[in-house]
Design a protein around this nucleic acid. Sequence first.
DNA 1: GGCCGTTTGACAACCATTCTCAACTCTGAT
DNA 2: ATCAGAGTTGAGAATGGTTGTCAAACGGCC
Lengths: 132, 132
Amino acid sequence: MTSTDGSGPRPTKQRLAVLEALASVDDFRSAQEVHEILSSSGSPVGLATVYRTLQLYADQGDVDVLRREDGEAIYRRCSETHHHHLVCRSCGATVEVEGPAVERWTTSMAAEHGFTAVSHTLEIFGTCAACS
Amino acid sequence: MTSTDGSGPRPTKQRLAVLEALASVDDFRSAQEVHEILSSSGSPVGLATVYRTLQLYADQGDVDVLRREDGEAIYRRCSETHHHHLVCRSCGATVEVEGPAVERWTTSMAAEHGFTAVSHTLEIFGTCAACS
DNA sequence: GGCCGTTTGACAACCATTCTCAACTCTGAT
DNA sequence: ATCAGAGTTGAGAATGGTTGTCAAACGGCC
Ligand SMILES: [Zn+2]
Ligand SMILES: [Zn+2]
Ligand SMILES: [Zn+2]
Ligand SMILES: [Zn+2]
């Protein structure tokens, strides 16, 4: 429901397959990993298309993006509301977390320094219970 | 303060030059940009050495690293205490900010979900007063 | 001076990501 | 159904940041 006119991106077989692949796992995956999943699941999609699709959905806000330490982009299908992530460094397990106080803090901090059109990123990394 | 024995990395001319280049600007710069600064300032340092040096200091915690939207790593010489950043999307102007409440929130959030060995990243992006 | 581990730098290699472009697929009219 | 045109795909080439290679240069030490 990102657009209502008929001119938006088409829900093609490939695009739906990418979303399904993301939905089939619970943690963040790179474009190449999504491409892998699709190939081994019998509905292969071109690598370029996977890249295009992921960034399409990322722009629409339908998938979350963050970066591994080496800079590689990883994607996850998350809930629609604004949230942040608690990610296990070892197994990748991901928990969505919310913190209204943090949201307020970032906005007030930005206002205090005269910044406008503010956004923010916040991720927490650690070792989950299963991995420790 | 990262090592006290005499076997640590040597403070070579090139390494000091890299630190100086970073100190000469106030915002985050990429490795290639640091290499540029050094070249045009009359004390050129090999690009590979710039990369090695920046990640050396980053590992030691002497410089902060974050990533542009396209994934490129950028570096900045910051204060020694733990802090976060308010960065102008347009001109790159950077302000260091601290928020004890946020620090507490991340730790309690991690503990609540059984995560240990926790770290976190938090950056705020916006348009600074001068650019708006 | 000569020895030896560290550091450097030019260049090649790597690899995630983007570009190119011809073939393909919808959709909506005719 | 047919056709035109816009949107989409995929294989491969190209891009570009980053890392690896390795011989030469350096620095402390005997
Ligand atoms: Zn999310
Ligand atoms: Zn938030
Ligand atoms: Zn900093
Ligand atoms: Zn913090």
